[in-house]
Simulated assay, not measured.
Amino acid sequence: MINSAVKPFAVKGYRQGQFVDVSEADISGKWAVFFFYPADFTFVCPTELGDLADHYAELQSRGVEVYSVSTDTHFTHKAWHESSETIGKIDYTMLGDPTGTLTRNFGVMREAEGLAERASFIIDPQGIVQAMEITAEGIGRDAAELLRRVKAAQYVASNPGEVCPAKWKEGEATLAPSFDLVGKI
């Protein structure tokens, strides 16, 4: 998936009290995060989505749009948003993918169950996957780490010839790979 283009899609979503149509055209020219999760009205999922909601303003300030995705419908997302305090604080778009097309496009469909894996993808403005994370059912993700990876991806994209080492944080030193660095790190 890394360095591959997002495949065409068209789905319905729920955002800030409205139903919306979203396609690959909506992410063109922008950074985006696709945050797949198994199902609404579950256990680990709301903790992750709430954590992501807490980091959404900073992601937006960096020009990143966030799309959570499950194989539930946009109607189910609306009901969950209205019934859960944690989910009610979400301002990003919650995409419904009942046919599984978008989930399959990203290669994270659990076919036997019809549910998405717990997976995150960072997409650059050209629609290319720059980072991904997939965890087992019971392992929740950390939005702060996702934000760190977004910052690293944006830094590398803006600074050709530089790379971000392990645990890199914004403002810290980067590396400029060269023959002289071989064996010296």
Rank of each mutant, 00 (worst) to 15 (best):
G138Q: 03
V182P: 01
D142S: 14
A32H: 00
A32S: 09
T42D: 10
F179I: 14
P125N: 08
S158N: 15
T86W: 00
G161K: 10
G107Q: 05
F41H: 10
P38M: 12
G29T: 10
G100Q: 04
A112N: 13
E82A: 12
A39H: 08
Q126R: 10
A57E: 15
G63N: 09
F75R: 06
M94V: 08
Y56S: 00
L95D: 03
Q154W: 10
F35W: 11
H77V: 03
I139F: 03
V6K: 01
G17K: 02
P160K: 14
H55D: 06
V44A: 01
S68Q: 05
A176V: 15
I2N: 07
A173C: 06
Q126S: 10
D40K: 01
L181F: 07
F106N: 02
V69N: 01
Q60V: 15
G183Y: 11
R141I: 00
D180W: 14
K7I: 11
T86Q: 12
S4F: 09
E65Q: 15
T101R: 02
E48P: 05
W168P: 02
A166Y: 10
S83K: 08
H74C: 08
S84W: 11
S23I: 14
F43K: 08
G88T: 13
E82V: 08
K89H: 05
E111Q: 05
A136L: 12
K151L: 13
V11Y: 03
R148L: 01
M94E: 03
P8D: 11
I87S: 00
A57Y: 07
H74A: 14
D54M: 04
A136G: 13
S28N: 11
A116H: 01
H74V: 13
A131H: 15
S23L: 11
D72V: 05
V150Q: 01
I134G: 00
C45E: 07
G100W: 02
